[in-house]
């Protein structure tokens, strides 16, 4: 368990934001933390969608239950948060 800063690039938002998360967080938990700073503030909620996480530039998303420390994500790496069907 350790505090771990990453960068949130949230779909449809206008700015990159600092996102302090924890190495034990799952990708779903990281996505929820990112959504807190974008959805309902500048991005309209989409209750029918889930937010998935990937590295900037990747096609592939991380598994939703993958924990941060298992992913190889580096501190202050820019992650994209994308609305998906599942």
């Amino acid at each position: 368990m350790a505090l771990f800063p990453v960068i949130s690039n949230f779909q449809y938002d206008f700015v990159l934001q600092l996102l302090p998360v924890d190495t034990d967080n799952t990708m779903d938990e990281v996505a929820a933390a990112a959504a807190h700073h974008s959805v309902g503030r500048r991005v309209a909620p989409r209750p029918d969608k889930v937010v998935r996480v990937r590295r900037q530039g990747d096609e592939q998303f991380f598994p939703r239950d993958a924990r941060l420390h298992e992913t190889g994500i580096k501190p202050m790496e820019t992650l994209e948060f994308i609305f998906c069907d599942r």
């Binding site: 960068i7 690039n9 449809y12 938002d13 206008f14 700015v15």
Partner: peptide, 14 residues
């Protein structure tokens, strides 16, 4: 701040 176009034209990038 690093920022660009939101909404339908979303092109924000690091």
């Amino acid at each position: 701040p690093i920022c660009a176009v939101p909404g339908d034209g979303w092109n924000v990038k690091d």
